Amino acid sequence: MTEDEMRKRLASLRVEHRDLDIAIEALVNTGGPDQLQVARLKKRKLRLRDQINQIENYLTPDIIA
């Protein structure tokens, strides 16, 4: 995967992460009994966050001075 492709993937992951945040908030605010769905969305959001961090770390590696 090229760096440009990684940046595009990173942008799409961020959008999906933000969309999940909105969906979770909407489910919680409705007070519905569907806590299982909320838990699944939160788990997916955490996986996305891990993928985002992994790509960010690859694109901006630590430089030891």
Rank of each mutant, 00 (worst) to 15 (best):
A11S: 14
A11H: 12
S12T: 14
S12D: 15
S12Y: 12
S12R: 11
L13H: 05
L13C: 08
L13I: 06
L13F: 07
R14I: 10
V15P: 06
V15H: 11
V15G: 10
E16D: 14
E16N: 05
E16R: 04
E16H: 02
H17F: 08
H17E: 09
H17K: 07
H17P: 01
R18K: 13
R18H: 12
R18N: 10
R18V: 01
R18T: 10
R18P: 00
R18I: 04
D19K: 14
D19R: 13
L20W: 04
A23D: 02
A23T: 04
I24N: 02
E25W: 13
L27A: 11
L27M: 13
L27F: 00
L27N: 00
V28I: 12
V28S: 09
V28R: 01
N29I: 11
N29W: 14
T30G: 09
T30K: 15
T30H: 15
T30L: 11
T30C: 10
G31D: 13
G31T: 11
P33E: 15
D34E: 13
D34V: 11
D34S: 09
D34T: 08
D34R: 02
D34G: 07
D34Q: 08
D34F: 08
Q35M: 07
L36K: 10
Q37C: 06
V38K: 03
V38N: 00
A39H: 07
A39T: 07
L41G: 03
L41I: 00
L41R: 09
K42D: 00
K43L: 14
K43M: 13
R44M: 05
R44H: 08
R44A: 05
L46S: 09
L46A: 10
L46Y: 03
L46V: 10
R47S: 05
R47I: 01
R47C: 03
R47Q: 08
L48Q: 07
L48S: 06
L48F: 02
R49E: 01
R49D: 01
R49F: 00
D50W: 03
Q51T: 03
Q51E: 15
Q51S: 06
Q51Y: 06
I52K: 00
I52A: 04
N53F: 12
N53P: 04
N53I: 06
N53W: 10
N53V: 04
N53L: 11
N53T: 08
N53K: 11
Q54N: 10
Q54W: 04
Q54T: 06
I55E: 05
E56I: 03
N57I: 05
N57P: 01
N57H: 03
Y58W: 07
L59A: 00
L59D: 06
L59K: 04
L59Q: 03
L59N: 01
T60I: 02
T60E: 12
T60Y: 09
P61H: 05
P61N: 06
P61M: 07
D62G: 03
D62K: 08
D62S: 02
I63G: 01
I63V: 09
I63P: 02
I64Y: 14
I64H: 09
I64F: 10
I64Q: 08
I64T: 14
I64V: 14
